[in-house]
Write a protein that binds this DNA or RNA. Sequence first.
RNA 1: GCCCCAGUGGCGGAAUCGGUAGACGCGACGGAUUCAAAAUCCGUUUCCUUCACGGGAGUGCCCGUUCGAGUCGGGCCUGGGGCACCA
Length: 876
Amino acid sequence: MATERYNAPDREPHWQSVWKDRDTFRTGTDPDKPKCYVLEMFPYPSGRIHMGHVRNYTMGDVLARYKRARGFNVLHPMGWDAFGMPAENAAMQNQTHPGTWTYANIAAMRTQLKSIGLAIDWSREFATCDAAYYKHQQAQFLDFLDKGIAYRKSSKVNWDPVDHTVLANEQVIDGKGWRSGAEVEQRELTQWFLKITDYAPELLEALDTLDKWPEKVRTMQANWIGRSEGLLMRWALAGDTPAGHDVLDIYTTRPDTVFGASFMAIAPDHPLAKALETSNADLATFCDTCRQMGTSVADIESAEKLGFDTGLTAVHPFDDTWKVPVYVANFILMDYGTGAIFGCPSGDQRDIDFARKYDLPVIPVVAPDSDAARAEALRQIAAGTAYTGPGVMINSRFLDGQDTQTAFNSVADRLSGETVGGKPVAERQTQFRLRDWGISRQRYWGCPIPVIHCDDCGVVPVPKADLPVELPDDVSFADPGNPLDRHATWRDVACPSCGKPARRETDTMDTFVDSSWYFVRFADPTSDTPANADATRYWLPVDQYIGGIEHAILHLLYSRFWTRAMSDTGHVDNLREPFAALFTQGMVTHETYKAADGTWLTPVDVDITGEGQARAATQRATGQPVTIGGIEKMSKSKKNLVDPDEIIGSYGADCARWFMLSDSPPERDVQWTEAGVAGASRFIQRIWRLVDEAIAKGATSDAAAPVSFSDDAMALRRVTHKTLDQVGNDIEALRFNVAVAKIYEFANALQSALAQNEPKPDVQWAVREAAEIMVQLVGPMMPHLGEECWARLGNHTLLADQPWPAAEPGLLVDDQITVAVQVNGKRRDEISVAKTADKAELEAAALALDSVRKALDGQAPKRVIVVPQRIVNVVV
RNA sequence: GCCCCAGUGGCGGAAUCGGUAGACGCGACGGAUUCAAAAUCCGUUUCCUUCACGGGAGUGCCCGUUCGAGUCGGGCCUGGGGCACCA
């Protein structure tokens, strides 16, 4: 039969306009329907979509369409993470306004996204750079300020000298700016912070409730929050102590090693160090040197552990005749714990290095229990290697013989009730590694921080009635730095409190703020408050969030915090966790190609010949040989990009979608290959032909179901309904590659059935059923092809509006099954039996097999294990 | 250094509960169709051994638990990721 090929690039825009005209994917709250909020991380409007976007949004789209078919009221929105540095860089290069650049990019990318055929409610679209959005961000900031969640402090900050801005700790990767890659410097600046540390215990504990999040992400967040259990200890100081410094507070997680203490160390920025500096020029010089030290990994690893003896001593809490020297040391951090420690050299490599350098005692206090291991540990300590393993206490007076945990408690208990300088000598304390989130950025293209600085009144919040504080349009990027600082008419305002001349805050918010609550705004993007209570109560939390693993800490931790802060400022009802389920998808990779002159080449400029070892590449334009490089994440720098527009234009969006879902598990990287695209394209044509043949050879849509089915018809119906059942489960579990494989198997089965000559009426009916279900199964993944086939089958409805078909339970189980027969655990044979066969029947059938009899050789079996419906194992 | 994950044919991968390892796809090989090609269809494709029937080995390596291990436990090796002067 001559069948036209399915012309995807021609038909896809048609179905997209049908969905658009019918408002198919517009959503509203509907209390009578169960809701499902499917969200993919919204894109930054860089200008063009890339294959990673296609993969990300396709996954979410399959789930959204499937859930819709299952009767859920589905929210599947799209927006733009639109503030950020690239717009400013473009402004400097092209003399355009960042807003102009950004909105043009959004327009281009919207068109591209629409060409993928996503089931998105576009009426909810917004960009974070819309004043209508950031107005509500400013309102929330004011509420946070009011509640003490936002505050201002002077502190050492990470300064990116290339981007001329401050970075949060989370944004410093290996000592370099996450965006610019420049070595980060330390500067003292007054900045706005959000009190994420107040939420540290909750953010950590609640990770246990996120059972639909990847374990990996939860672990990364737990490590980042970094809880530790320890003791705050107060040691009395002796010697010529500055006023108010009679006692030194230290934090330790190992109070059990207190009898191994041989020195105290404090940070160069510790108040005690600063007090001593004023009267000790040498110490001041030492501290200055420490402060100037870089914080890059290289600096830290190469830096020697240095100390400066203050001349003061600290009195041991268990023996007031025992005094240890107090050092200022360059490896002590002021912003962790109390900025002071006691050093136990035998149990800490840093401390032992320090002790050996300054000739301080090294007292072993923990050692393994067995004699041999203990001797070895002591030898190692003597040689300069600390023992950090488990063991029992030695040389530790009343602690001797206790294990380390018991000793920890003994110390805490023994000191409880004791006081020094009116305060307890020791208190149990939990410390977190997490620091407060610094959100001030010295940038133009961000959300203005809505406060005004007045010489008389201090920091004055902008009255809510005056929001939004809009960015001025008339700015120049000719000079480096923040144009808001130079914009006098915007910057200089009257104090809202006293009316005197005052200055606007010219810092804008970190763009991670913008993405920390956009998912809430989607519930009602036109609400005149940040969140509409009814809408958020109905839609949130997000039921399935999908995005890249690179946001495991930054975006996802900030969002979890912001949601709690919104809840605590009354913007949402008791919502603590924004994302009930999280899925982190893998990247899209491609081979790399390098020309003889070392420049990277894009795949379209390269011709590949040969296979396997014989593969070779040449440059298309010149015929010059090309080196085939490794498979790497698609990136502009390596030029190993494939443009979604080109694929969609020549093969169609469905082809790109199907390929993205096939083969590779969604959480792993997928390698984009020409062969893979061609395979997907072949399958599209195959479905098209199968539907066509099924129409020709199968029953008509109105044919009554036969009263009974032959074995052939039953076989096809079983495959049909099993596939229906399994594909649903696989989509639900986001196992798209497995769902794809099941559909292939189903297609093979249908094709075999169609190969019969003159099928009987019951087979014809089963063929028709199979074709219809096949179309519905591919619908969520290849929606355009689905609609086209659905219409071809004679339907006047939209496939997108069809409910998911129900699998007939009776067809999901086989009456006759194959059970493997093992001899001594090795598979020797198989038997075909009724599904209901009991142990005795299975055993008898297995023992009757020639292969089993041969193995038994006339002997009775020692044992026969029978697991009905699964296996028979004969032990000889 | 600490923490986490992964390792299955030529390749991507499947095996949801400890029960027939390699589904499905890609690639390759053989065949049909065609004047020829494209397209399509059919078959073979873990390795070793055998003319064949068959037999043996096999999920990174070693050991263990079990009637039975890709799956569970212990110890390694390799690769990837995260954290890191955090007391």
